[in-house]
Design a protein around this nucleic acid. Structure first.
Length: 279
DNA sequence: TAAGGCCTGCTC
DNA sequence: GAGCAGGCCTTA
């Protein structure tokens, strides 16, 4: 499932591939993958626009256009694969059945959006568009780009009653954290996922911030985490899954103390932690 | 704060 | 064949 590091890797890979390119007419195979406007209008309006740059906020991917912005969100199983002309799109990782949208460029290259579970999709925003998706306009600061240690402490202090894991996952609080990197950050900082923010000492809060930065940095450097579905724009896998200390390791010994890693449900999410190392 | 809905492939 | 995976929105 793409979180901040995966979306950042995709952004970096796409930048040299798509900047300066002009969209040809899109093909929409699954209408609900186009959130707004209606698919016909989406295709009509995107055609002919050029890409001036790539951006990211939280888990949203931004194609900056000469007029407006194309927003994408991969949700759980979305993949954006880049195809060159003459080189057949061979994706053992993404059956054609799952192809939802094709975004061709003039010249023959194309972006292919595959999404097994049909959660992800696109928004096309015009310049002074007020039709931003609600989640995007209310997004908190990007945890990677916009939050330093002092700001993180300030943000935490405003939410003393929240439990730390659900708060980190709240995209209105900070944008970009998902289930995997949150569990890993809490393990590295030795903090139990259910701790109320008010119970964290300043030292623990700083430790948490540094752990968040460390796992995101390593996640990006590893090209993301491929537990099952995530692929980069070339169809390749990331390798951070090999570095995971708790996520997905229920019953296996903690690397630090050898206690079995536990799995509980917190705010509806499967949550992995070491009951001995995290208090 | 929690639960339901959106979704489908995989596991039990 | 039910339940799980979970990002994000909506509703209670």
């Amino acid at each position: 499932m793409p979180e901040l590091p995966e979306v950042e890797v995709i952004r970096r890979e796409l930048t040299p591939l798509v900047c300066g390119k002009i969209f040809a007419r899109p093909a929409v195979y699954y209408r609900r993958a186009i959130f707004s406007p209606e698919p016909e209008e989406f295709s009509c309006r995107l055609q002919g626009r050029s890409v001036t740059g790539m951006g990211r906020k939280g888990k949203y991917l931004l194609f900056k256009l000469d007029r407006g912005t194309l927003l994408a969100h991969l949700r759980m199983t979305g993949k954006l694969l880049y195809g060159f002309p003459g080189k057949a799109m061979e994706n053992p990782t993404a059956p054609e059945r799952d192809l939802r949208v094709k975004l061709p460029f003039t010249g023959g290259d194309a972006l292919y959006f595959y999404d097994m579970r049909k959660f992800g999709g696109f928004w096309l925003l015009d310049e002074q568009d007020s039709s931003q998706p609600a989640g995007f306009s209310r997004l908190g600061p990007d945890i990677w780009e916009q939050v330093d240690e002092d700001k993180f402490l300030t943000l935490l202090q405003a939410r003393p009653r929240a439990r730390v894991k659900p708060l980190l996952l709240d995209q209105h609080f900070v944008a970009g954290m998902g289930n995997i990197y949150t569990d890993e950050s809490l393990f590295r900082s030795g903090i139990h996922p259910c701790r109320p923010v008010a119970s964290l000492s300043a030292e623990e809060s700083r430790r948490l911030y540094r752990a968040v930065r460390a796992v995101l940095t390593e996640g990006i450097a590893c090209g993301g985490t491929t537990t099952r579905d995530y692929r980069n724009v070339y169809g390749g896998s990331g390798s951070f899954q090999e570095m995971l200390k708790v996520y997905g390791r229920k019953g296996e010994p903690c690397f630090r103390c050898s206690c079995p890693v536990e799995r509980i449900v917190v705010a509806g999410r499967g949550t992995y932690f070491c009951p001995h190392c995290q208090e």
